[in-house]
Design a protein around this nucleic acid. Structure first.
Lengths: 195, 195
DNA sequence: AGTGTCCTACCGGACGGTCGGTAGGTATCT
DNA sequence: AGATACCTACCGACCGTCCGGTAGGACACT
């Protein structure tokens, strides 16, 4: 299914991701994508077999970015708490950085894909939740003390507060991304103990 | 613009909300809505002037529900901390209760509406964030102690962890809604202090 | 009681337009 | 010659929307 030049494909995916983010998957037409690239609609079908495939490739690429940029970058940090702190920083940066629209598309387009392909993406999302849950559990165990919050719930809470940022965060706003990440970290780490 | 019988309108809105939630606003057609109600497409236009109007009415009704069910129910609780606890419980319940699909539609369909109507909805959302921010600030002030997290950031964190639940929470899952709300509350309240 | 007027609620069917997708040709490069 | 990368022109399907018409009930006047 892939045609040769990888560069053309990447550029199409980049532009399509931007349009999907701006207008939504359904509202952005193949014509829109073609026009934005100064191409004909048919040219898109030279590189991709369908609109669905474009979306799937965007999402797969987005997951690649996430796993490299976040999980890959922290896997050598030995201390669990430091690893968690770095994870939060990087996750926030990937979501609100504005460079990687693919991430936003993954967050928003949740039932636009055929079931088989959706499952592939969801499996990778789930792996991240499990990773977070284990990491939080590790931090909790190391510090000891009564746990008021289950790692699983804390993981979903963290995921929610970060991912939801794509809905409200604007770079020109009062508080910077890294500062928000720092406060999220404080909220989570203090929240895990006490009482 | 409104036609008389309020009952018919309500039932159309209920069904449309269900379909918008299941398939997304763009992917759910007027034909889908009409078929689900055993009506003709034209009949929908007897009650509503456009698909946009249907969406707007769903969102307005959803905000009504939220403001009644959450804000209205807690406004007589004097103690700020107790008010915040109740707010979290009720907010979670409204999002994952499954009874009010309108809420989910509000959370997901964020650029499907014309700008004017979008602004009306957004103003009500923003009012809630401000309410939350003030409430959290009040709780913080009453307890005293160094504040590691700004009320504004904590408010967005709370909003995120609750609203994001519509993406992953399933009623048949391991942990109940109220229990998650309890743990979110613990996470937030402990997270606000300490250092 | 019968008749004409007006209403809401709905229907079949069609409108212009856009959608995702394709057939077939052309230019370029190896 | 054979790929690759594109083009113009077009397809059938479906979109949101609207038009002309109608069934059936309520009301008033004769």
């Amino acid at each position: 299914m892939p045609t040769h030049s990888s560069d053309s494909r990447r550029e199409i995916l980049r532009t399509a991701a931007r349009l999907f983010q701006e207008k939504g998957y359904d509202a952005a037409s193949m014509q829109d994508i073609a026009s934005a690239l100064d191409l004909s609609k048919a040219a898109l079908y030279h590189h991709f077999s369908s609109k669905d495939e474009i979306l799937f490739q965007i999402m797969s690429y987005g997951m690649d970015i996430f796993e490299t940029q976040v999980l890959g970058a922290i896997k050598n940090i030995a201390d669990p708490e430091e690893r968690l702190k770095a994870c939060i920083q990087l996750h926030v940066q990937v979501v609100v950085g504005g460079r990687d629209r693919e991430i936003t598309v993954i967050l928003h387009e949740n039932h636009a894909l055929p079931e088989d392909e959706m499952r592939q993406i969801n499996a990778r999302k789930k792996a991240y939740i499990v990773y977070l849950e284990n990491l939080i559990g590790e931090v909790q165990r190391k510090r000891g003390g009564a746990m008021a919050v289950q790692p699983r719930v804390a993981a979903f809470a963290l995921l929610g507060m970060i991912n939801w940022m794509y809905q409200w965060y604007r770079p020109e706003g009062r508080i910077s991304g890294p500062e928000i990440a720092r406060q999220y970290t404080a909220l989570l780490l203090h929240g895990l103990y006490g009482k």
